[in-house]
Amino acid sequence: MSKPVVATASLAGCFGCHMSLLDIDDRILQLIDLVEFNKSPVDDIKKFTKECDIGIIEGGCCNSENVENLIEFRKHCKILISLGECAIMGGLPAMRNGIPIKECLEEAYLNCVTVDDRIIPNDPEIPMILDRVYPLHEIVKIDYYLPGCPPRADLIWEALTALLSGKPLNLPYEVLKYD
């Protein structure tokens, strides 16, 4: 039987969740035995080359590109996992959700003391910023959630192995944290 295929991405996140994934230490060798990675920063595969079983996404959606990526993941993955606070509830980027986008942009690009070219970036090539940061599950269906900032490596490990083996997820108290 072929190994389950996993894809991962970081949207509006800091890659901390991916770092935490690598934090499973030598178990990464076991993981590689268990699964095959497809599109992911881990192996630098930029485009989906096949349909995947599990998509793991870090970060929420703060711009149009995030949304497009997320929708592509939903299309190609049977199971989608929201990994970390940003994916689940917007996280730190969502601290701007109470502030009008105009105010944010003006503060960042016009009024801030350290900027030289006082212009709000508007090149058609760059993604468009959304009115607020959206949790992933507001945009596509999400199957599982793994909280934490970042999620503890043990949480990721326990969850993945449970999912791959079909066994119920049994979480030790210490691995579930929101920070």
Binding site: L92, Y145, Y178, D179
Partner: peptide, 23 residues
Amino acid sequence: CPTCEKSGNCELQALGYRFGLLA
């Protein structure tokens, strides 16, 4: 939670942990 001074000592968070709340 990640930005909050009370994180780790917060009772709301602790209840979330106790109830195994993922999202």
